[in-house]
């Protein structure tokens, strides 16, 4: 014992600082990335750093944010959900399907009262989530494969309901939350912030949240401690589907239309937000704080690239490179922690 303390006191300040950094790499790296991007775009474009643009960025990441909230639960349990974008798309289309559409829209839809349409839409994403959870926890299909199948099923539901058409009307409540503002603040930003806050509280302060981290950290150990790990993983998958569904409905209002393949980019964005933020793909480490960082990095990057004069075809490549960098850091953060630990 005293040998260790002696060693610790002998180690110099710089090596201790390095170890501190290594332990917190997961949080420090995305924060530095964010600061760097903000600084870069501020210098590169006069129109970037303004209050108005800040609201733009927040509004632009809100749909991703709501999806990423649910995905954070799933990734923390060391599983993955590839069906989020498809579930979002399907739910958005379901809510439009049960809403009275303009005569020009040629869909055999079933107009219902707005509240009922919303309930049915939520029920459908809940059902999709339960099917995923059943497949993963009861049948034992790896989540990667199971959610890949659900992605296709979600896309199939979209295709069947709209048959290549575009629907425009959604219930009034959805229109308000998705595209209106309250005292200058877009409702969709409010919803995203509430979702992030609620998820943070659940993950940090509730028993279920603790189980999510423990199951992700070491699933077998959690089981052997008498935790129903299958239930925890299943719940995370259902939460993910519900978040995706809400994002899907609001997204339809935000975009102003409901159609096939409209959320395709959101799968990558949501996963990127969670992972770029520093939540471990191996489970058990990270959280909503990291997801917020990741969302801001992505939002600033997407928005900033529009402000600087850059080949728009190059943007896709740049986003890919940023994501790759984040993945490298994610894996290294794990390794650095391990190394720092061995040193003492």
């Amino acid at each position: 014992m005293d040998a260790t303390t002696a060693a610790a006191s002998r180690s110099t300040f710089s090596s201790r600082a390095a170890r501190w950094l290594a332990h917190r790499m997961r949080n420090v790296a995305p924060l530095l990335t964010l600061l760097f991007l903000v600084l870069f775009f501020t210098l590169a474009s006069p129109s970037f750093a303004s209050v108005g643009n800040l609201w733009n960025i927040l509004q632009q990441v809100s749909v991703t944010a709501i999806i990423a909230v649910g995905l954070t639960f799933v990734i923390l349990t060391a599983e993955i959900d590839l069906s989020v974008a498809a579930v979002a798309n399907a739910t958005g289309i379901v809510v439009a399907f049960f809403t009275l559409q303009d005569a020009s829209v040629n869909i055999a839809n079933v107009p219902l009262p707005g509240w009922l349409a919303i309930v049915l839409a939520l029920a459908s994403c809940l059902l999709l989530g339960l099917v995923t959870a059943f497949g993963v926890t009861r049948i034992g299909i790896p989540s990667f494969i199971m959610t890949l199948a659900m992605m296709q099923i979600g896309a199939g539901i979209c295709a069947l309901l709209v048959r290549g058409q575009i629907a425009y009307s959604v219930p009034a409540l959805v229109t308000t939350l998705g595209s209106r503002s309250i005292m200058g603040v877009p409702w969709i930003v409010v919803v995203a912030v509430v979702a992030l806050l609620a998820a943070h509280v659940v993950l940090t302060y509730t028993r279920f949240g603790r189980y999510v981290y423990m199951v992700g950290g070491n699933r077998e150990a959690a089981e052997n401690a008498g935790v129903n790990a299958r239930m925890v993983v299943g719940a995370a998958l259902v939460i993910s589907a519900l978040c995706a569904g809400v994002a899907g409905m609001l997204g339809v209002a935000y975009f102003g239309s409901a159609q096939q393949n409209e959320f395709d980019g959101y799968l990558l964005d949501a996963i990127a937000a969670v992972v770029v933020g520093g939540t471990s793909l191996f489970g058990g480490r990270g959280g909503i704080g990291n997801t917020i960082l990741g969302l801001l990095v992505l939002g600033v990057l997407n928005n900033g690239l529009d402000h600087v004069n850059i080949d728009s075809f190059l943007k896709i490549l740049i986003r890919g490179l940023i994501l790759l960098t984040a993945l490298v850091i994610n894996v290294y953060a794990e390794r650095l922690r391990g190394a720092a630990r061995e040193q003492g």
Partner: peptide, 14 residues
């Protein structure tokens, strides 16, 4: 229950 391997029952990181 206490299983045979410590890795199967403890959370080293916590």
């Amino acid at each position: 229950f206490v299983p045979e391997s410590r890795r199967a029952m403890l959370f080293a990181e916590e």
